[in-house]
Write a protein that binds this DNA or RNA. Structure first.
Lengths: 254, 254
DNA sequence: AAATTTTGCTAACGCCGTTAACCCTAATGA
DNA sequence: TCATTAGGGTTAACGGCGTTAGCAAAATTT
């Protein structure tokens, strides 16, 4: 072994890293040109100028390559979302949450192909749903993609918790949320899920309900727009803004 | 040609129809066992006990077979939804719309694999979004799947129009809908889209907005649940009912 | 300089969708 | 009734795919 935890990158390691990014770049190009199912190992090999078998020195399988691609996409999405949120000062929680929604949407729509791929990973349990799969098992031994999807979701959830914590007693009327009567079982599940989502802190049940409702709406919006089935196409921005306003109303906010 | 429009089915035609359903049945079995991408023409041929090339006498391509499958699924879904709606008398529009949502949901969740396939058809313009693609071009030369998806959507849309038409002046306060201010362009687009959706009849703008909002929510719910990412898993039924109540609130109804 | 690890290669296996060429049989029409 | 078709089946092949085994060369480590 050459450099375990903190050694400087050897020449070989640099080359290897370069090759990996080259492979992923080629795969992404194919994704953009021919869609998720149009990515072919052999075509990538041709593109990179190498034999098909050589790719297996870098990725265990085609699936592993796609997974790596997805991870990169999540990183991109998370970076952009975080940057957009941080454009507002830390105490403007509402604006920061709006930025989260807005950036999630605009990234997804301007990266339809990437979004499509992310939607179908991991196999048989599509991700990007803005909601981590339930129930959450052990904290860390989930596949990397699910972890990143949770990280992405939590950015918004944590902001909500902060919002509640800091604005308590500052004039917001938290009882104003429009929520139907819920069965005790559902209430418990919402609270528990909220606890795994919005770490440590507890927000009122009504907020949890409104938050999850909002997630569902955002997810529906983004998927429909990305797949070209939103009934609004010319004034989408306006429509999104209206939808965000409607969601805020569910929180009893203007 | 033997029987063009109304001739009795010849022996050959009966055999052919039988073979076709046998092929589709085998393909559906593979769909259930191995997912959408696990359907293989050669495997179907093996299963049916025929050479791979023989299948081309019945379907032009694998894609054509999948399309035919999807059509059948839509027919199933539409049949079930219509039956569920017709379990309530024609004048109980609210109940009928609830049945639409409920059946759409339960069919999709209990037919995850089928749902998954439908979601990705037609290529590069996923369907089943409960919203026809926009803008709608010519009325009839759309691909059959899109047509059926529109038919499915319209069942609910027409019911809404009926609801409005028959209950006008019967005590509902149609101005009560919570809707943010919309830009003139968005208003126009909503009204136009509404006209293509809910044929002939016009409902108030607020209802159109609430209706489309509801669609987005239903779609988000169904997709998330079908993909296993709904944060509620134990009390899903209760959660759906609560969400339906919330949507009704958007209409100003209890 | 020797030993070892990494990275590439070629060749092959077994899938896949699709097509071409040919054959047999059942329905058709004179 | 008999020749003609058209429908439904075959086999064989093409080119693509993901993946593996085995081997050679280069780069690193010892």
């Amino acid at each position: 072994m050459s450099s375990d935890t903190a050694g400087k990158p050897s020449r070989r390691e640099r080359m290897r890293a370069e090759t990996i990014t080259e492979i992923k770049a080629s795969a992404r190009r194919q994704l953009l040109d021919h869609g998720p199912s149009g990515i072919s190992l052999r075509a990538v090999a041709r593109d990179v100028g190498v034999s098909p078998a050589a790719l297996y020195r870098y990725f265990d399988s085609l699936d592993a390559l796609l997974t790596a691609l997805c991870c990169d996409f999540y990183d991109e999405l998370i970076d952009e979302t975080r940057a957009a949120m941080d454009a507002s000062p830390p105490e403007r929680h509402l604006e920061r949450m709006k930025s989260w929604v807005w950036t999630f949407r605009s990234w997804s729509v301007s990266h339809k192909r990437e979004f499509e791929l992310m939607l179908s990973f991991p196999e048989d349990q599509g991700s990007l749903s803005a909601c981590p799969p339930n129930p959450i098992e052990s904290p860390d031994d989930l596949d990397p993609i699910t972890q990143k999807s949770i990280e992405h979701s939590r950015m918004c959830g944590l902001e909500l918790a902060e919002f509640y914590r800091q604005s308590d007693g500052e004039g917001f009327d938290f009882g104003q949320v429009d929520m139907p009567e819920l069965s005790p079982g559902l209430e418990r599940e919402l609270v528990e899920q909220c606890a795994t989502l919005i770490i440590g802190d507890t927000v009122p049940l009504t907020w949890t309900y409104a938050f999850i409702s909002g997630w569902v709406r955002v997810f529906g919006l983004v998927v429909m727009e990305a797949f070209g089935n939103l009934p609004v196409t010319e004034n989408v921005d306006e429509f999104y803004k209206a939808q965000i306003m409607s969601m805020l109303k569910e929180f009893g906010l203007d």
